[in-house]
Each structure stands twice: as structure tokens, then as C-alpha cells.
Amino acid sequence: MSVDQATVRRIARLARIAVDDAAVPHLQGEINAILGFVEQLNEVDVSGVPPMTSVTPMRMKKRADIVNDGGDAARILANAPAREDDFFVVPKVVE
């Protein structure tokens, strides 16, 4: 499988990465090289093989469903690029 330039632009959009038109052909070449490399996986018969979903066979532990943290806005906001009181500031999302 290989991707065309429209697909490269669509992937960039999905990944939320701004890509210059000039960079598209180069990126297309690199992505296609990687897709070409992984093509060999199609040689393998995987029928009946379950996908690996857990590296170590163990039950996922769950913590108690209680509040165990919070009330610490100052620490949460300590690295914010823009803030106002106890809020992160972003451009207007809803008109």
C-alpha cells in the first residue's frame, strides 16, 4: 500500500501537525518507504492468531473508586503557557 499526497495532508490534519505544501512530496516518500518496509508482514499467516493485548499475562489492577488526589490547581497550572486564575487560557473554541 502507498499513500498519495492528499492522504499525506489528511494524515497531517488528523495528527494535528501543520505541514507546508513544499514538504508534502518528501514526507510522502518517507511514509511510503516505511509502508513498503512493513509490507512483508503480509507474508505471515495470522489466521487464528490472537492479537497481543497484554505483554505480561496478568489481571489489570484497579484502584478503589474514591477521590485520592486533587485540590491542587497551583501545581497543575505551574507550567501553563497561559493562565487566568485557576484556568488554562485557550483561543475561543465556541462562537
Binding site: R16, A18, N79, P81, A82, V90, K92
Partner: peptide
């Protein structure tokens, strides 16, 4: 939004990108 680099955009999507 919450930490690190921010490059402003016209809207939040452009800011992400």
C-alpha cells in the same frame, strides 16, 4: 494548552497544528 511550547493560531485547531 497545559505545559510546554505554545505557538498561537487563529483558533484552537490552528494553535495545535
Amino acid at each position: 494548552v497545559r505545559y510546554g511550547l505554545r505557538v498561537p493560531g487563529r483558533d484552537v485547531i490552528e494553535q495545535y497544528e
